[in-house]
Structure formats: structure tokens, C-alpha cells
Design a protein around this nucleic acid. Structure first.
Lengths: 138, 138
DNA sequence: CGATTAACTTGTAATTTGCAAGTGTAAAAA
DNA sequence: TTTTTACACTTGCAAATTACAAGTTAATCG
């Protein structure tokens, strides 16, 4: 178990949230866990926008400390570690969905993201339900 | 008009969004503009968690460059500058609302935020409509 | 006209990040 | 059984970013 302290600047809910994931990488790690099904250190390292190894280790520790992710033994190998979203982490799905919808509206994103944004527009609740059930099965 | 370049790491919508507001301060500035009605440099400086003057100036420039906020002359004084959310910036309301709802569920926040979170739970659309109409009137 | 307000800018120390390389343990290959 | 290879980190250091304090410029107030 990781023991670090997160300093909260105020009791504003947005400020508190940013004290946990207010940086360029944390939400991308959460994205990879939530949408891409990546759940080992090595996968997360390769999976995205090129995060540095020390930053990944640091953020995983921070997110674990904040109760967003859990760190357990991998069922297939003792050498691997399994990272998963906790219910608190999975609860960020609506936030990520709204970010995707906003970003797709205002920027050029990849085709897959456009399709996903359209699904969100059509039936947000269904998209959310699908995400939650996929995370539950893991 | 501010001219800076924002480097986008990938065409992922979440990554793109974080390239704009993925730090500890930007969303707090947007919060102050959206919810607290603060709209001058001095107000934003005092209004929150103690942002440094140079960081505020930097973030205002970045957010303007990203099309999130606009910078115009203040109607009451030539010495002041009026900062306002653009439609793109106002479009972040659902993101902020989901962050508030999530944070209130998992952390201890101030009483006002609890009340606001309850309103969101009760009728999200109404809360959003109210935010948009307030921003329009400004 | 002097003082104050507002919006920054500048300088510098402290902190954080990014990159490359190294470490320890577990599994796989020779 | 010895040697690689894979995996999850850790360490060292340069570069970038942030925080804090002070200074600058223009507008308004008394």
C-alpha cells in the first residue's frame, strides 16, 4: 500500500479534484484503464502519448493513494502487477465522457473519437452503462 | 490578441483537452468566471486558492489563445480588463458539473458545494440551463 | 498633483518534469 | 543450470515550470 500525502488547497470540489488529477498525465492513465483495457505498468507505458517511466510510477502511486486505482497481483504472472480502477476511479466516467464530447465539438480528433462522441450524444446513459459493466467484468 | 502555440500531444480528445486545461489552475480560473462571476485580473487573483500573479497572467493568455476566454475592455473603467468565457469556454459547464458531483461524492467539500451537488443530482439540465443563461446575460 | 488601483512583468529560488540509464525479481530460453 | 529477457520500478541530472517577492506602466481617485 502506498502512503503519500496529497495536499488539498481548499474545500472546493473542483480544487480538490484538481489536487488529485490536475496534471497532463493522470486522466490519460485513467483513460487507458477505463477505455483501452490497459492494466499493467508496461502496457500503460507504451499505450499512450509517451509518458516517462518515473512520471508513470509517480502518478500510479498518487492515484492509488487517492483511492482512484488499486494495485494487485496479476493473475497470469508474478512478475506483473494489475492496475484497476476502484469504484471511485470508475466514477470519473461521466467526467471523461463530457471531456470527450466537448473536445470533439471544438477540436479535430481521431475518427474513433468522433464515433464515440456521437454515441454519447445519442444515448449518454447507455454509453455509461456499457463502460461500468465492462469495468465490473474485469 | 494573444498569439501562443499550444502543443497537442495526440489527436485523442482527452489528451487535447488536457493540453489546454491540464494543470492545477486553469479549471479554477474557468470556475471563477463561470460560477463566481469574477471577471477582472484582480478579482481572479484574490478570488481563489492563491494563484501567483505570473501564473494567472500566463494561464489567461493560454486560455485566450485556446479560445476559452475573451479579453475585452471593461465597461466601467479603462484601467480594467474584462475576462469572459466564450461559447467554447461555457461549453465546459458539463465537465465542471460532473467534477463537482464526483468530488462531492468522494470528498469532504464545503456546504455550498453539497447543496449544489444535490441540485445537480435532482435536475442536471436545469442547473446547466441556469449557468448558460447567467453567462449569456453577462 | 500625489496616492492608489489595476494589470501585468521581471528576477530568482524551489519544485517538477523529461530523458537516459540502472536495479531487482520473475519467467523463458538455451 | 546458466543465461537471457520481461517487467516494474528507481536513480541521477539537465531542463522546464512554478512560487514568491518586487518592480513597472497606465488609469483613476482624492
Amino acid at each position: 500500500m502506498n502512503k503519500r500525502k496529497i495536499v488539498f488547497r481548499s474545500d472546493c470540489p473542483i480544487s480538490t479534484a484538481l489536487d488529485i488529477f490536475g496534471d497532463k498525465w493522470s486522466l490519460l492513465i485513467i483513460r487507458d484503464l477505463m477505455f483501452k483495457g490497459l492494466n499493467t505498468y508496461g502496457d500503460l507505458l507504451k499505450g499512450g502519448e509517451g509518458i516517462a517511466t518515473n512520471i508513470l510510477a509517480d502518478r500510479l502511486g498518487l492515484l492509488e493513494c487517492a483511492g482512484i486505482i488499486s494495485k494487485t497481483r496479476h493473475p497470469e504472472s508474478k512478475a506483473k502487477v494489475l492496475y484497476q480502477l476502484t469504484p471511485k476511479g470508475a466514477g470519473l466516467a461521466p467526467v471523461l465522457i463530457e471531456i470527450i464530447a466537448w473536445s470533439e465539438k471544438h477540436h479535430e480528433v481521431h475518427p474513433q473519437a468522433i464515433a464515440f462522441a456521437n454515441e454519447i450524444k445519442k444515448d449518454k446513459a447507455a454509453v455509461l452503462a456499457q463502460i461500468y459493466s465492462r469495468l465490473d467484468r474485469q
